[in-house]
Design a protein around this nucleic acid. Structure first.
Length: 482
DNA sequence: TGGGGTTAT
DNA sequence: ATAACCC
């Protein structure tokens, strides 16, 4: 027989040690539970975030706006307030307000079913995401004032690592007297709170911060939402949904098992998606308990070591993934779906529309995309999982024209996109597409350093044979990323 | 099923 | 370039 390996976390530890000082500055540091080995290692960065005794214990807030698109629409159209409202994309009601929900409308319900359930339902078109996107970033920016460590999840959810913020407030408290600390909002399971337990005190302060966040979002942006406070992202997300709408809940560590037991199927576990659920079901794994007790070795063979270990940890409520600050977006895309597109001319028109919107967005962003991608969906029985794409670098002379309004950047871009199109679609043969999408990625900042002046990029040159007295310049080698 | 996003392979 | 995940 072969000895089982025990030290399979060695590499990971070294990697994380190198990153720790960085994360302490930017991300609040304590981003995972301490392993047993680390506790006895004399690490120079230990104890910087959370004092000894409580190990590294994070406080994470998950903020989840209530029916976000519908709220934005009710702000844009106040006369709709109080009426059952649905937001429509194509023939789907993608979300709706609580008046509509009371009358039986569900998210992602077809327009026909929704109207049948609720004939008074008011529908607004939500295919243009511009206003939602703008409001979404306002929320993220507001949250960043509480802690710079904010990770976006979709347009309507954010994770905030408030570990450092909590620590500051703890230190401001009169010498270890926690008797005045109270919870804000619900405590999951109505669990009793112990002020002698420093972890409890930290989470309570987290709940107060969460309350302040929701207050700020409401007062400054007019939006309501839920919040969950817990020791990691998974638990904060699960607990934020326990009191809905416009309420918040904190999870004390002792109730962790109850929270994950409240899931009635593994597909409700964030991180376990459609594909993994199918494969787990084929192994006879349906409940969280099934996953907890399943043989790790067999699971690793079925799903690969990475997925297997990660999701089995999730089943115990363990999640060491850090809150990664999202910053500005990594990509911009616009898509349109339709019943049928079967000619090149038709496709070109739609691509031009998508591109025009994208160019506006990219122009407002300020950064320049260096990659462009075209995505298609061909007609097929399984609508899902059937996209193809081609991408290529954007030629530098096109990139340079991007910010400037006066040059035509559409024409060269459309030419590129149509080449990508013909690379994917044999236009001499009949075809049937149901979606087109254009994506800009590989965004690079313009060099904005010191003086935004041109002379920063030019270096004086003395070798000027023809025009003595006139100064000439040579290009410096320059890269766009500072 | 929409119109977006992200990271890993 | 695709596949998985998230909303």
């Amino acid at each position: 027989g072969v000895e089982p390996e025990e030290e399979d976390e060695e590499e990971e530890d070294e990697e994380e040690d190198r990153m720790e000082p960085l994360l302490l500055g930017a991300a609040g540091g304590a981003h995972r539970a301490l392993g047993p080995k680390e506790a006895i290692r004399p690490a120079p960065f230990r104890n910087q975030v959370v004092s000894a005794g409580s190990a590294s214990y994070r406080v994470i807030v998950h903020v989840d706006l209530d029916c976000f698109y519908a709220q934005v629409e009710m702000i844009s159209h106040p006369e709709l307030k109080g009426k059952p409202l649905g937001v429509q994309q194509k023939y789907l009601v993608v979300t709706c307000n609580y008046e509509a929900r009371k009358l039986g409308v569900k998210k992602l319900m077809s327009v026909r079913d929704a109207k049948e359930k609720c004939p008074q339902l008011v529908l607004v078109n939500g295919e243009d995401l511009t206003r939602y996107r703008e409001m979404s970033y306002k929320v993220t920016e507001l949250l960043e004032e509480f802690s710079p460590v904010v990770e976006r999840l979709g347009f309507d959810e954010n994770f905030v690592d408030v570990t450092q913020t909590v620590e500051k407030r703890l230190q401001q408290l009169q010498s270890d007297d926690y008797s005045g600390v109270v919870v804000s909002g619900h405590v999951y399971n109505n669990q009793s709170v112990n002020l002698n337990d420093i972890l409890h005190v930290r989470l309570l302060i987290g709940s107060q911060i969460a309350e302040e966040m929701r207050e700020a979002i409401f007062n400054q942006l007019g939006l309501t939402g839920c919040a969950g406070v817990a020791s990691n992202k998974l638990l904060s997300k699960l607990v934020s949904g326990t009191f809905k709408p416009n309420q918040q809940t904190v999870l004390m560590p002792e109730s962790c098992q109850d929270l994950i037991d409240s899931l009635d199927h593994i597909k409700q576990m964030p991180g376990i998606g459609f594909k993994t659920t199918k494969r787990l079901e084929s192994l006879g794994i349906n409940s969280v308990h099934d996953l907890q007790t399943f043989s790790p070795k067999i699971l690793e063979k079925e799903l690969g070591i990475s997925v297997a270990q990660r999701i089995q940890k999730l089943s115990f409520g363990e999640d060491n993934s850090p809150v990664t600050p999202s910053g500005p977006p990594q990509s911009f895309s616009e898509e349109d779906s339709f019943k049928k597109c079967s000619s090149e001319v038709e496709a070109k028109k739609k691509i031009e529309e998508l591109l025009a919107s994208l160019l506006n967005r990219v122009c407002n962003d300020g950064r320049k995309p260096h990659t462009i991608r075209l995505i298609i969906r061909r007609f097929s029985s399984d609508r899902h999982f059937n996209r193809e794409s081609r991408q290529c670098p954007i030629p530098s002379h096109v990139i340079q024209k991007l910010g400037t309004g006066n040059y035509d950047v559409m024409t060269p871009m459309v030419d590129i996109l149509m080449k990508l199109f013909r690379n994917m679609v044999n236009v001499k043969m009949p075809f049937h597409l149901t979606l087109l999408s254009v994506c800009f990625s590989n965004l690079k900042s313009l060099p904005t350093s010191k003086k935004g002046s041109i002379e920063f990029y030019l270096t004086p040159s003395s070798s000027t044979p023809s025009h003595s007295g006139k100064r000439t310049y040579k290009m410096k080698d320059t890269h766009l990323e500072e």
